[in-house]
Design a protein around this nucleic acid. Sequence first.
DNA 1: CAAATATACTTAACACCGTTAAGTTTCCAA
DNA 2: TTGGAAACTTAACGGTGTTAAGTATATTTG
Lengths: 212, 212
Amino acid sequence: MYRQYLKMGINERKEREKELLQKSILTAAREVFLEKGFDQTSIRSIAQRIEYSPTTIYLYFKDKDAILFALHSEGFQLLGSKLEVLYSVENPYERLKAMGRIYIQFATDYPDYYDLMFVQKSPMNNLEDDELWKEGASAFDGLKATIQQCMDGGYLPFTDAETGAYLVWATMHGMCNLYDRGRCKVLDPEKSEKIVDLGFDEFIRMMDSFKK
Amino acid sequence: MYRQYLKMGINERKEREKELLQKSILTAAREVFLEKGFDQTSIRSIAQRIEYSPTTIYLYFKDKDAILFALHSEGFQLLGSKLEVLYSVENPYERLKAMGRIYIQFATDYPDYYDLMFVQKSPMNNLEDDELWKEGASAFDGLKATIQQCMDGGYLPFTDAETGAYLVWATMHGMCNLYDRGRCKVLDPEKSEKIVDLGFDEFIRMMDSFKK
DNA sequence: CAAATATACTTAACACCGTTAAGTTTCCAA
DNA sequence: TTGGAAACTTAACGGTGTTAAGTATATTTG
């Protein structure tokens, strides 16, 4: 009968509604996360914001880590959008320097996103043991390619692009993380507030001296 | 009466007993921490191990952060003991390289201690706002002094010893932390397991090329 | 059209957590 | 012997992630 034809439309509407709630859960999660921070982002606080019971969330996400993983992916999208301007930078070494500046700016502007993307273990629990970390990999590949071009252009003397990219990444990450975690208290108070930028400048100066 | 004379002895015994329990709480905390890790180190689990009620712990420590701070200090003592061999290294550049190796070895051998010392925010909550972070400062001063000597000896071209020390520290920290937090999945699986050492070797190679 | 069933959601509960207030036991001094 | 301080425990508060069971609603089927 004609109801058979309606069924599809109804199912589609239902699917749309499901997706809508899934999205509103994620929106609520993002709001709580950005307003209150990682620690205060609880299933219950997300549920309260969308006026559903906490258990409803489990009908749309496997567990809390799945939500955090989704937010982590959002962070990578945001970082990616900030990095887009680099396409116009043709000189690989200039691009690398700009990349570093943007990375640090991102870590400073969105410390919670940064933490979720590069420090917290929770979002990584969502990956299967053999599953690869797509978000991280594509960002890293971009860096690696630039490093390779820097090597080819004689700007940097790394023996291996991948190891070199890791080393540069680790330096940026270490500076941001030590600052974020309050470990820069050991520094001269006058320097400690702007130490990440000072460190970056010093890093650039070191790299500059490599140019063959 | 003669009891007056005993009183002091009794009070001293009581004080010794108080210290004893304080120490056994710390021992239990350390055991749980090293066996089960940071996340599983709860007041309740520590209490269970010493067979006291959880609330007793609060008679000996202000809160959980105070215990974590005590463990964090232990970590610095342990790291300090590992660094002792450096006294015999006269060449500052050789000492710096050895320092880096020991630092990485420490982070690898005692990841939980390392986390507590350089990543977790909890132990830092125990410090007053204006209070300085003694443990971190004395470790950093050791690095800074060596960096300064490297600069003086023409091994490294940093413009400022403090910023240079921070930069070197951040590089080591970044490599260790990215590895610990599972972010090295982005690397070639063949390299990822030994990436910290590979990165360190590359770092040394870079530094070597600075020698004036 | 009524009964059966599937869907969406909630309530209640479990097992944890850090922490505090109130109560109990133990010990020493007067 | 009794009063009181000190040491410790019990019970509770408000929070966490998560699951099992129950309810209401909407859809399908006989």
